[in-house]
Simulated scan of single mutants.
Amino acid sequence: MPQAGGLNLKTLFVPGPYDNLALPLKGALGPNANLSSLDYGTLSDDTSQLAARSEALVLGPGAEAACELASEDGEIQFVQFTGCRQSSLAVNALQANGLTVANAAPVIAPFVAEHTVSLIHAALALAGQRARPISELVIGIVGLGNVGIEVARHFAEVGASIVYHDIRTVVQGYATEVGARRHSLDRMLLNADVVSVHVSDTPHTPGVISDRELKLMKSGAVLVNTSLPEALDESDVAQALASGKLGAVALGVMETYPDSQPGPLSGQDKVITELSDATDREVVLKAVAALVAHNLKRVEAGDPPRGLIDPVGFPGVGDPSFWSSRLAPRQP
């Protein structure tokens, strides 16, 4: 018999390898929740049976690959990622099988945006532009999603001009709210004093900012990345710094190298590194747990969850974002 006041939706939680979400999630769901946990790193013969009996799948940071447990012939109808870095290809596959998919971007984005804004100001100071009025700056946002819009909103409120590039058609209200103008990637790079990267995990993400894109940027511009480390070609960025093309770089994420060898941007005078995972903070963990509990209850009631992930489509000819350096044929 279902227990009154509890979550009856049969939910399987797969924590990541360094996941601290389990206790906050259990607290948010309450003692009567129909919740099972699975260590994805030590799969057993019971794994498939446990997944087959579940109706919802919650994946901790680092456990995104476990989305394969939501197979076509199972009972799982809802997949909740507790981070923001899930693969678009994995999400598209889940959605193609009729599953509802959400992530925790609505509650994580403000914290990542706060970190990004701090890095932008630090990078501007390192580039010798501390005294320059913000109202004179053009802030370029690569990816106007949950984090990008928060960063854009902050700088729009203090008078900066906002331009952005996104392969998706952004919800119009977002761009209008901050007065953001949509450009191709090339045009945005040519005009921006600050380029802030907020891309998701898609086939186009690796090296989206590489040698060609760096050569298009304004001389002395600053580059900030708090999304995915592979979005930047770090060797090309190091060369742009050495040549004086870039004024400064600020990173919230970096590539890792074999045997803990330093990367091309390690120890650079004009590079700020403040590596931070928002989901490690207690206040964020509690917010994520509350969101997950809220979403499970909404799905159980037949309502859409917060953080619902829209299918990612790629633009066609005629869309302004088609004429980017990554989506259109171009000369080197």
Rank of each mutant, 00 (worst) to 15 (best):
T273Y: 01
T273V: 15
E274A: 11
E274G: 06
L275R: 13
L275H: 09
L275K: 11
L275N: 09
S276A: 05
D277F: 15
D277T: 11
A278G: 06
T279M: 13
T279N: 13
T279R: 14
D280I: 02
D280H: 08
R281Y: 09
R281N: 10
E282A: 10
V283S: 14
V284T: 09
V284Q: 12
L285A: 04
L285N: 08
K286W: 01
K286I: 04
K286G: 06
K286L: 06
K286M: 00
A287M: 07
V288Y: 00
V288P: 01
A289V: 11
A290Q: 04
L291N: 02
V292P: 04
A293I: 07
A293Y: 07
A293F: 04
H294V: 02
H294L: 12
N295C: 01
N295W: 07
N295A: 03
L296H: 10
L296F: 03
K297R: 10
V299T: 13
V299N: 08
E300K: 07
A301E: 13
G302F: 11
P304Y: 00
P304A: 05
P304I: 00
R306P: 01
G307C: 05
G307R: 00
G307V: 03
G307F: 07
L308K: 10
D310G: 13
P311D: 15
P311N: 15
P311Q: 14
